[in-house]
Design a protein around this nucleic acid. Structure first.
Lengths: 148, 148
DNA sequence: TATTGTTATACTCTATAACTATA
DNA sequence: TATAGTTATAGAGTATAACAATA
């Protein structure tokens, strides 16, 4: 039942388990920052992307977050129902739909980020510059790992 | 607008956003490794903990994962329904319930980890030793951040 | 009264399958 | 046929509120 003997009993093996647990905990911590009655985490990330990068198609959004198009369709439904985003047909390809943030959506994206990231920004500020560099490198590594 | 253009306020701000997105993506990637019909991510992590560390009370388990006791109660319900864990009353304190993995649960914990972490272990092996150290340090930092 | 645990309920997030509309 | 998007349905994960049992 033993692990990987590369570096001694359990050492390498533990890194995977440690990473999994740490990421799950941090993800729950992020979710818990949601104020009452506001958008959920996934919806807010999409809204933030629309706010920052302008109109995107459904397929693009689903690829950005690596979720199925059907899942993304439901996320943007929450945004359009709330009046934070709108659909427009692509004039050059009638199959495509472009999603954009409304002015209200832009305001929500700004406000929500400020509220919900305040504690994270504070924590990051408290780290040493070296530790912040570790976090930045780790984030890049995670994106690579998640793609594979 | 800008991409970490300066060392000013915007640069620090970006790290938080990058971390959030990277963690969300990696978390979804972890979840997607679930084979058909098997336990979900949260349930498997609890089962793994019971397998590794022996009997735990509900409160202990909920604190381990930083979820509410009510949420953890539902997670362990899935485990007991499946026959992977059992409840026993604490003989010294009738309010407490001790949860333990069954032999079947132990087997599932071992097998599931091997299956579901295979790709992650492979990815981590592909990293340089330096990058693995970055991941390990980041995992420790995440636990600290999640606690705060 | 305080602690431990459970159930009821509701919402977010996500997936697969089946569908429509356009190219 | 292939691509873009939607809807229906289901299940995991999580929370709050209300409750019961034990200390």
């Amino acid at each position: 039942m033993e692990k990987r003997a590369t570096q001694g009993p359990g050492a390498e093996d533990d890194l995977g388990a440690q990473l999994r647990v740490a990421v799950a905990r941090l993800h729950r911590r992020f979710r818990s920052e949601r104020p009452e009655g506001s958008l959920g985490d996934a919806a807010l990330e999409v809204l933030t992307r629309l706010h920052k990068h302008g109109p995107r198609t459904l397929t693009e959004l689903s690829e950005d977050d690596r979720v199925s198009p059907a899942s993304m369709s439901q996320i943007v439904n929450r945004l359009t129902s709330a009046g934070y985003a709108v659909r427009t047909r692509d004039p050059h390809d009638g199959r495509k739909v472009l999603f954009s943030a409304t002015p209200e959506g832009d305001a929500i994206a700004r406000a929500a980020r400020a509220q919900r990231h305040a504690w994270l920004d504070r924590r990051l500020q408290e780290l040493s510059a070296e530790d912040r560099a570790v976090v930045a490198r780790a984030a890049a590594l995670f994106n690579k790992i998640a793609e594979s």
